[in-house]
Design a protein around this nucleic acid. Structure first.
Lengths: 172, 172
DNA sequence: GGAAAACATTTTATGCTTAAAACAATTTTG
DNA sequence: CAAAATTGTTTTAAGCATAAAATGTTTTCC
């Protein structure tokens, strides 16, 4: 049963409504749990990728983006999709070109733009990894019913929209 | 309406059931959405901490752990709680001791163990940051109803348990 | 009691990540 | 058309992060 103080707004000396220090403990706990789940799964995937394929998670993620874009992507596109900084992508791409997984060329129509693609080798290796990766994910989520999955998808979509709105409010 | 092939098990030449390559696309999409939500919120919190308090997220997280433990924690405890590597904590603590936010001493009873605590300065600064941080989180989750929050908490708890079980299956 | 196992932490080597500044090419606009 | 703004990428400097090996300490268990 909540205490009285939890539900009323304080009145100041001039009898105008004043914000009580609101209780946001529930949202905070939700955020920590969300973070815990992600960290747990991410760490597991990272370790398995390293053990099975000697590849890092960021490299895998970048290849995953390119696998969906047969005609290649620009570095900016990749950066936005992966939600990481531009400089980060520059370095990742450098190493993946070096190892022969990526092909990189300057755009014909805009000399600022770099277009990157998976090489044959890169695509083949990615497909091999992705297939196993999918089974890991399925296993990690194995205890969720199809209904749980649907419900989580819905609530996370709502969460994403809420967070995006809030982010935009700060920097318009 | 699902195609026939989605629901049947293939039969091999000797009429024994054979695993179809199962479709785990839903779980994969769920994982990506989970990751997106976390990355989005994490990036937002990171940026605000930097702008408002010139502090990094890992430093804040470490201080948050210590704020809950007035008698201090060992590096191992912190490492487990934060779900990061031991070496990582060593470096973080070094910098926070340097800046006067943490106090570190060798345990009286076990000379292997380092016990760290927030200093007065560290605690004061953390409290100031934490209070604002809580409002950011509330704002980021603002569009979720209390019921949404409860439901997400429940489903994420189930997800965490499932993932932990799967992780243990691999390395017992 | 002493060798072996377990534990807590640090070190090492490498790679990831960011924010901000710098650079270069294109587009906008007065 | 040229100055200014914008866009795409790279560089820089600092910090974060990991896995694996190394170091010192305590327990375990013959």
């Amino acid at each position: 049963m909540p205490a009285v103080g939890d539900c009323i707004k304080m009145l100041d000396s001039e009898t105008k409504a004043v914000e009580t220090p609101e209780d946001h403990a529930e949202e905070l706990r939700l955020w920590l749990r969300l973070l815990t789940c992600t960290t747990l799964i991410e760490g597991e995937v990272r370790g398995r990728l390293r053990q099975r394929f000697d590849v890092t998670l960021p490299r895998f993620d970048l290849m995953a983006q390119l696998d969906k874009a047969p005609d290649g992507m620009t570095l900016s596109d990749v950066s936005k999709r992966m939600m990481v900084s531009n400089g980060n992508v520059t370095g990742l791409v450098e190493r993946l070109v070096e190892s022969g997984h990526l092909d990189r060329r300057t755009s014909e129509t805009d000399r600022r733009v770099q277009v990157i693609r998976l090489t044959k080798l890169g695509r083949a290796e990615f497909r091999r990894m992705a297939s196993e990766h999918e089974t890991w994910i399925a296993d990690l989520f194995a205890d969720l019913t199809p209904k749980d999955v649907r419900e989580l998808m819905r609530l996370l979509a709502k969460t994403k929209a809420s967070a995006q709105k809030s982010a935009v409010r700060r920097k318009p």
